[in-house]
């Protein structure tokens, strides 16, 4: 819940985001060597990928992606 976009023009296929994502949301496309969002709904919105991307290719927005049961 949070990752929205990976700019394929900027992505250099370094794989850092794919390796580091705590929820394992991202994958690298074998053919194009570009990262993509494989499991968007499982993103925990931690912004780690955005902050670690050396190309500044990733955009996250801090909103819930799916229904979030709340205390009240």
């Amino acid at each position: 819940m949070g990752i929205r976009h990976i700019d394929v023009r900027l992505c250099n296929g370094c794989n850092i985001c794919v390796e580091d994502c705590p929820l394992d949301v991202l994958r690298l496309d074998e053919a194009t060597k570009k990262a993509y969002i494989a499991y968007l709904r499982d993103c925990q919105s931690c912004f780690l990928c955005q902050s670690e991307c050396p190309q500044d290719a990733i955009r996250c927005v801090a909103v819930h992606e799916r229904r979030m049961p709340k205390a009240w």
Binding site: C46, F47, Q50, S51, C60, A62
Partner: peptide
């Protein structure tokens, strides 16, 4: 809190 503050900025 670099990550949390980026989150605040994003919205």
């Amino acid at each position: 809190l670099p990550l949390a503050m980026r989150m605040f900025e994003s919205v």
